[in-house]
């Protein structure tokens, strides 16, 4: 499984009597190893597309393929397995587990994946060092800055070397220095690990790192350009 292919993807939401269009016949293909930014104003559909690709939300119609796998037709359990083994998520609010240390947050998913204890510890220490958190492994999220927490979240997302990393507004809560550091990290991980990155953002600093910029508006892709 390497590329993502979305075909005629539609999604609507109901807000009271109002029907909001999240995705309006979206077609997009993302190749392995790409570093793609989905940009657009709030409500443009970038998070909806990201959630649909990640199997967190199901489209009303259309197809999503990851390699040969039809994501939109998978059942709940199979979707969870797919996320566990093939996708890494980075969220705007970091979403770390507060009772676990940085190392444990990174190890947690690996334990669910069934990785052996020693292997887990080795991988967690290595990836935390790679994201610049050496020495902070035993700190809990509340003892880390926003930027450090987001780096833990990135380490958690990529430690199992997923085929795809999906990041939703990853720099929204970071200052410019931390944001630059994080994007540099994403770029380096993309290059070094070969993971495909799809980042939803309206932060111009983030877009500057993208090698492909997809602009969305009202649930539609209005431009798709290599940079």
């Amino acid at each position: 499984m390497s590329a993502i292919h979305c075909h005629q993807l539609c999604k609507t939401f109901h807000q009271g009597d109002e029907i909001i269009t999240g995705l309006d016949h979206v077609d997009i293909t993302i190749e392995t190893g790409e570093f793609v930014c989905l940009s657009g104003p709030s409500g443009s559909g970038k998070t909806t597309l990201l959630n649909a690709i990640g199997g967190l939300d199901t489209p009303d119609s259309g197809e999503i393929r990851m390699g040969d796998l039809r994501i939109d037709q998978l059942k709940r359990g199979a979707l969870a397995d797919m996320r566990l083994h093939h996708i890494g998520f980075v969220f705007q609010a970091y979403n770390l587990i507060p009772v676990l240390s940085a190392r444990e947050n990174v190890e947690f998913v690996m334990q669910v994946q069934g990785v052996a204890t020693a292997e887990r510890a080795r991988k967690a220490n290595a990836i935390l060092a790679e994201v610049g958190l050496q020495g902070l492994e035993d700190r809990r999220p509340a003892q880390l800055s926003g930027g450090q927490q987001q780096r833990v979240a990135v380490a958690r997302a990529i430690v199992s070397q997923p085929d795809l990393v999906l990041a939703d507004e990853p720099t929204a809560n970071l200052d410019s220095v931390a944001a630059a550091h994080l994007m540099g990290l994403f770029a380096s991980l993309n290059e070094n690990h070969g993971a495909t990155f799809v980042i939803a953002t309206h932060d111009k600093r983030v877009m500057a790192y993208a090698r492909r910029l997809v602009k969305m508006q009202d649930g539609k892709i209005i431009s798709d350009e290599a940079q």
Binding site: G54, A80, R83, L84, F91, N95, I97, V109, V112
Partner: peptide
């Protein structure tokens, strides 16, 4: 609930 949502997004099933 929010934490459980995150865990599910990371690939945990309700049974976990």
């Amino acid at each position: 609930t929010r934490e459980f949502g995150t865990m599910m997004a990371l690939g945990l099933k309700p049974i976990h």
